[in-house]
Write a protein that binds this DNA or RNA. Structure first.
Length: 757
RNA sequence: GGCGGCGUAGCUCAGAUGGUUAGAGCGUGGGAUUCAUAACCCCAAGGUCGGCAGUUCGAUCCUGCCCGCCGCCA
């Protein structure tokens, strides 16, 4: 076994605040780091923040501060949260630090000296949000995020990525373990096989970055800047590279699945070009979904770790704040590692969190510790009893010993294989077994007798229970460090961080050990904790529509909900195969929403998918000033809508109708949307403006037949992205038998832009 | 559209180079118990292992097609 381990999280882009997605990545890394350390392996765990780029420059401008002030603030939030949670990173690198900047310049110069960087020029579209060039015609939105692109004409430095195509493929071939999970590996390989183009690695359109050495009109491409952190933090290119010499290459880069490409293609290529060793493994984990929906600011369903720390921390009011936080962190850590299959997308909900907590931590492990220590306290004065081999009980104690000794290697193998949920399942099997053994041997009955045999049996069974708990605790320490440390101390084992758990095996618990003070570990969580956490997030995630119309929140929420339902109708019509059912369902949802609005009650709206990335370069939030789509609140209730006059069931008022802005528009451009069978991209003239609308009518109308045709559109529908393209409105059509759309039109000629009233 | 992945109990997931009654946890129903955090223990209900066809003595597992979901395609 190697005696060092270097692992990293991505450095988080400071354009978004820390949320549960970034917390997840960091928690996984922390658990691995703790396990490695407890095995006596010299471990270096790096995290940090990524702080350059045009997006930051503009966000700072919007916030009315300098980029440095802006990044100082957000970076501190990340670090503050990690500290609150007691995460044990060994270094926190910021890309704005001098140590990083000078090393990145050195790397750039090295690549240039090696002949892998040359000057070229580029004219085309640039997406500020993604910090990337995109291959679309001028004026078209970014295919990745749907935001507007900018036309740029830049003379840039290029990295000869194309020179590494074959070398990379050979590397993947020789190191099949380099990328996990396998599905990510397949993607990367097919990407490289389809041909690599040289990569533009400098920008002149903004200043907030690291200047290219010798040509300060350019700043270095943010991804080259960011990726280099993994070596600059170790002191590569500095006066003192000893740490680099010790720890590089990295043993594990943990990243979100959306950035595997950068870590599995660009990063190895840069390193190859620089003549440096390649990291041993990159694992691209999945996203955390909230109740099966992607989290996004526009959806208003971003969950923050703080909510969990606060809520669970409050369950232990007697503890100092820092310990409360770390207790809350344990709860979250356990959930994330147990519930989510590492590598796959996982579903987060407060309901599931409380459920897991109560059944596994409170009723399972916590109760097991409690009942065992209570009995040792009561029957043996809090001293670990003698492990006597009592014939009548040998089968039970042997059972405990055997399954424990089997579980240790199994847990370790699974954990080290990054299959955390399975590892924890193994540990909790031990908890279940032990509960069964305790019940079967009924120590409380033995204690009621006073013969020597019963006393010996009692001692044997309680020793076995305590010893099994010691081993379980050692195993799960990396996952629930705060709680495990408490149990460790209660078992009279001292500080768990001092323990070397490499040779963990049955029999390590010394009879006669005086137990420490026993405190409740995991008080049961009440159902109302779920409501509380949902409400806390609600407050932190105001629905954008409501926020934009202060004082009229309820109404705004309803309007926004109706809009998203109408969007849903458009999508159903364009994409669903079972359109009739989908449309009927949505229609009744619309009708219900209108009724609710009228009657002043509120229920949950069905959710609509909005693609948003979770990690850097995340596009969570309207950071570039792009309007975000209003979304219905996903959970709980919102403020009661403004009083509305009573109306007959199923009817709307004239005011309600007046909210829908129907206009005559003329189709100027119509073309099929690639990859969508039913979708057409239309550009329509509204008299005073032209806008893009996506309509699910490709199966009924040939694009060329539509040019010049006058149609009715809903002009004030919230923008919505379909297949990466933004749709600003909806074409009105009748849905006839079989779901076929028939466009609404006029028998007489009408003026473009005219409103329908 | 191209390439890749997935579809197993209400939920989250295991699993088998193809071979007798397909598993676990949670949830649900019943029972038992009192050491323990209304907890723990036992029992039960619940699955044509996405659909159809093929290969085979035998397929949930292999092959093909289909349906659904998802990822990557700078």
């Amino acid at each position: 076994m190697p005696d060092k381990f270097y692992l990293t999280t991505p450095i988080y882009y400071v354009n978004a605040r820390p949320h549960i997605g970034t917390t997840y990545t960091t928690v996984v890394a922390d658990a691995i780091a703790r396990r490695k350390r407890s095995l006596g392996i010299e471990t270096f765990f790096l995290t940090g923040t990524d702080e350059h780029g045009q997006k930051i420059e503009r966000s700072a401008e919007k916030a009315g501060c300098t980029p440095q002030e802006f990044t100082d603030r957000v970076s501190a939030e990340f670090r503050g949260l990690w500290d609150r949670m007691g995460l044990t990173y060994d270094d926190f690198i910021r890309t704005t630090e001098p140590r990083h900047k000078q090393a990145v310049q050195k790397l750039f110069a090295l690549l240039r000296d090696q002949g892998y960087i040359y000057k070229g020029s580029y004219t085309g579209q640039y997406c500020v949000s993604d910090e990337a060039y995109v291959d679309v015609p001028p004026g078209a939105p970014c295919p990745e995020c749907g935001r507007p692109t900018e036309t740029v004409n830049e003379e840039n430095y290029y990295f000869k990525l194309s020179a590494f195509e074959r070398k990379l493929l050979e590397f993947y071939q020789e190191h099949p373990e380099f990328i996990e999970p396998e599905t990510r590996r397949n993607e990367v390989i097919s990407f490289v096989k389809s041909g690599l183009r040289d990569l533009s690695v400098s920008r002149t359109s903004f200043n907030w970055g690291i200047p290219v050495p010798g040509d300060e009109t350019h700043v270095i491409y943010v991804w080259m800047d960011a990726l280099a952190n993994y070596i600059t933090a170790l002191g590569w290119g500095s006066q003192d590279p000893s740490r680099y010499d010790r720890f590089w290459p990295a043993d594990l880069h943990i990243v979100g699945k959306e950035i595997t490409r950068f870590h599995c293609i660009y990063w190895p290529a840069f390193l190859m070009a620089a003549g440096l060793p390649l990291p041993k493994k990159v694992v691209g984990h999945g996203w955390l979904l909230f109740e099966d929906n992607k989290m996004s600011k526009s959806r208003g369903n971003i969950v923050r770790a703080e909510t969990i720390l606060d809520t669970f921390g409050a369950m232990k009011p007697d503890l100092p704040k820092a310990e409360q936080d770390r207790f809350g962190a344990d709860v979250l850590r356990y959930f994330l590692l147990r519930e989510v299959v590492f590598g796959q997308d996982g579903s987060f909900s407060f309901d599931a969190l409380v459920q897991r907590y109560n059944s596994d931590l409170a009723n399972g492990y916590g109760n097991l510790v409690s009942r065992t220590l209570a009995m040792i306290g009561r029957y043996f004065g809090g001293v670990v009893p003698e492990n006597s081999n009592v014939p009548s009980l040998v089968s039970l104690t042997k059972l405990a010993e055997n399954f424990t000794n089997r579980a240790i290697p199994l847990y370790s193998e699974r954990f080290d294989d990054l299959r955390f949920s399975l590892a924890l399942e193994t540990a909790w099997e031990m908890v279940g077994q032990l509960d069964g053994i305790i019940t079967a041997s009924a120590p409380w009955k033995l204690a009621a007798k006073d013969d020597a045999d019963s006393r010996a049996e009692l001692a044997a069974i309680l020793y076995a229970a305590a010893e099994a708990i010691r081993i379980i605790t050692a195993l799960v320490y990396p996952v629930i460090p705060e709680s495990a440390a408490k149990v460790w101390a209660q078992l009279g084992q001292g500080h768990i961080t001092q323990a070397n758990l490499k040779d963990l095996k049955w029999g390590g618990l010394k009879p006669g050990t005086k137990l420490g003070e026993s405190t409740p570990l995991f008080p049961r969580a009440e159902k109302e904790a779920i409501t509380r956490m949902n409400e806390m997030e609600q407050k932190n995630n105001p629905a954008p529509a409501a926020a934009s119309e202060p004082g009229n929140e309820g109404k705004a929420a309803h309007v926004s909900k109706l809009r998203s339902l109408l969007d849903g109708l458009a999508v159903a019509a364009s994409e669903s195969t079972n359109e009739t059912a989908a449309i009927l369902a949505l229609e009744s949802a619309v009708a219900e929403t209108v009724r609710e609005f009228v009657s002043g009650s509120e229920k949950r709206a069905p959710a609509n998918p909005v693609p948003v990335k979770a990690n850097p370069p995340a596009t969570v939030g309207p950071a570039t000033g792009t309007p975000v789509m209003p979304a219905a609140p996903s959970t709980g209730t919102v403020a009661a809508p403004a009083a509305a006059p009573a109306l007959p069931e199923g009817k709307i008022s004239i005011d309600d109708f007046a909210k829908v802005e129907l206009r005559v528009a003329q189709i100027k451009v119509a073309e099929r949307v690639p990859k969508a069978d039913k979708l057409l991209r239309l550009e329509v003239d509204l008299g005073d403006e032209t806008r893009q609308i996506l309509a699910g009518i490709a199966e009924a109308y040939a694009p060329e037949s539509l040019i010049g045709r006058k149609v009715v559109i809903v002009a004030n529908l919230a923008p919505r992205k379909l297949r990466g393209l933004e749709s600003n409105g909806m074409i009105v059509a009748a849905s006839v038998a079989g779901g076929r759309p028939v466009l609404a039109g006029f028998l007489e000629d009408v003026e473009v832009g005219a409103r329908l009233k």
